[in-house]
Design a binder for these strands. Structure first.
Lengths: 336, 336
DNA sequence: TTGTAAGCGTTATCAG
DNA sequence: CTGATAACGCTTACAA
């Protein structure tokens, strides 16, 4: 089935058929109806490849997901997926390892797929600074800030990680905690982790609380397993802390399990606070105190910015979505 | 950058350039090297659209994900994604609502995207029986059995849901439980739920245990929230049961939360058993007793079958991947 | 071994 | 308003 067949069936030329199919003016009602009817009857679909080849303009949106164990990205991809599915752009989703270079991968895929625009979930500034100049279509970095970078086509949507982490610590402090351990990511490779770490330090400083990185901080990936291991490592030194702040809900859950396996109760013996606001947190026992970032907001803003850049040539921007400190069962008031 | 440019640069004709780029024989070493060098130097990439248009053969694999709240599918998509990313086929992932018709959606997308093959996550036989005849490329239905259906291009990879559910109940029975409530999906629309339900009945019958659907069964989607609600509904009649079998881990987690909110302890007061073997189950408190299906196996088998059908014209087959009954904390021995 | 040229299904230009 | 026709970048007979 091609427009040629449609042309033969209706008696109109391929030119006219094409115009009808593309809702162009300068077609008579009669022709329009005839073509539309024939197309409908045969379930005709334009051949995307031919169309794109001719128009020289791509149609898909590329999504690069960095790291697969963080459930936040899973939800984010789904949310983005359902937003984009209802738009005219097909999604190409590419999952890469947490250790791979997301920008290089994106460059590679851009050459191959020539997408209209790109969404990158997770990443770090260093990789962008090094390789992003090879990317020329609109791109939105999601969950990481890219505002310092000198690229006119790079937007970002993120939570104010530093402030949010500081508020997480503040919340624990307000509950009476003074000895707080932190589990998070490797600050040298993850900007997110670095910012959240700095936020912690901000808060510790503000309250004059001692924090010794070597003693009170353990790093790993954002996954259940690494949260578990990091907490075990912390516990191996003896439990001097009354609270743990985990930089991701998945790590917090791993941490709680580790505490429990160590014979400690949450929150009676140790309070735990997470970060992300995953659905599971609401159902976990105990309910997870956390910093919630709305997956829906993050997804919606990212997609909207990208579409604006693609469709209206909008300027790149760097947005911050709101977060909320969720008071929940896993963090309790000390001595109450 | 087109092969024409490469042709001009090297002095060879576009035909020769094309042959080199496609690793065809009948090209001199000299020509091959010259072209490859030029391509390398300029970072040249063949234009996929033009190639496909000419060859009339598609290259992508379509993944249709039905329902977004079931974490199992989330992990599955990721697992499939990382398997396929390392193959020459781009993935097109489409998320649809749990209530949409996955086959119609697939038909629609096939017309548009003309994929090489299709992976459908979740679905029901009725939809396949009604509309699958419109699909002519290899397709694998994942997590649902399609063996009864008369389509030569339809494979399926699934767990033996009926047997697995029966073993879940058996496990609870072996722990001394006699009054077992079940939360699951709507059997009239979800084959998976129907099979698991029948498995439950098999086991109940085998042990002569009374089970009254109206009293002991509540349905909802496979999500935390629906597991929670279904359990609330069960509890609203008074708690006559000592154990709950949930047809999905996400429902089991919702169930545990509901029990807890009702002042009941798990497993001391009520045992809970799930189904799926999600990662979270290992970290949940209590660790979730479940039927584990290996996401990796499911993904690996599905992708392998699909690739075999696509690449070697392999025959459709219906496979069953192993499952395991996981004895874990959330299900305890009655009266011990 | 290499070059030439005819399409693949569309859209866009240009004449009618 | 409509119809020819030339591209788009590539592969593949076929000819040399």
């Amino acid at each position: 089935m091609t427009i040629k067949d449609l042309s033969a069936q209706t008696g109109y030329s391929v030119g006219t058929v094409s115009r009808v199919l593309n809702n162009q003016p300068n077609v008579s009602q009669k022709a329009r109806q005839a073509v539309l009817a024939a197309a409908e009857a045969s379930g005709f679909q334009l051949n995307t490849m031919a169309k794109q080849l001719r128009q020289q303009r791509p149609t898909s949106i590329l999504v690069v997901v960095k790291g697969t164990s963080n459930e936040l990205f899973g939800s984010l991809v789904e949310s983005i997926g359902s937003l984009v599915t209802r738009s005219p752009y097909p999604l190409i989703v590419d999952y890469i390892d947490e250790d791979d270079n997301e920008v290089r991968q994106a460059v590679q895929l851009c050459r191959e797929k020539k997408p209209l625009g790109i969404l990158i979930l997770g990443g770090n500034k260093r990789n962008f600074a090094a390789d992003f100049h090879n990317i020329h279509q609109p791109c939105v970095l999601v969950t990481n800030d890219a505002s310092g970078l000198p690229f006119a086509n790079l937007s970002s949507v993120t939570t104010d990680d530093r402030l949010a982490a500081a508020q997480a610590i503040e919340h624990l402090v307000s509950l009476g905690h003074r000895r707080i351990a932190v589990v998070g990511g490797d600050q040298s490779v993850s900007d997110t982790s670095r910012l959240r770490y700095e936020g912690c330090l901000d808060a510790f400083a503000r309250y004059g609380i001692a924090f010794d990185e070597a003693r009170d901080y353990r790093a790993g990936r954002y996954s259940y397993a690494h949260g578990y291991r990091a907490t075990q490592a912390l516990l191996a030194q003896g439990q001097a802390f009354t609270a743990i702040f985990a930089m991701a809900d998945v790590m917090a859950i791993g941490a709680i399990r580790a505490l429990k396996d160590h014979g400690l109760r949450v929150p009676e013996d140790v309070s735990v606070m997470g970060f992300d606001g995953l659905n599971i947190g609401e159902y976990f026992v105990p309910k997870l105190a956390t910093i919630s970032q709305s997956v829906e907001d993050l997804a919606a803003r990212s997609v909207e910015i990208l579409r604006d850049c693609i469709e209206s040539g909008g300027k790149a921007r760097h947005e911050t979505v709101p977060f909320a400190v969720e008071w929940k069962e896993s963090a309790r008031c000390l001595g109450s």
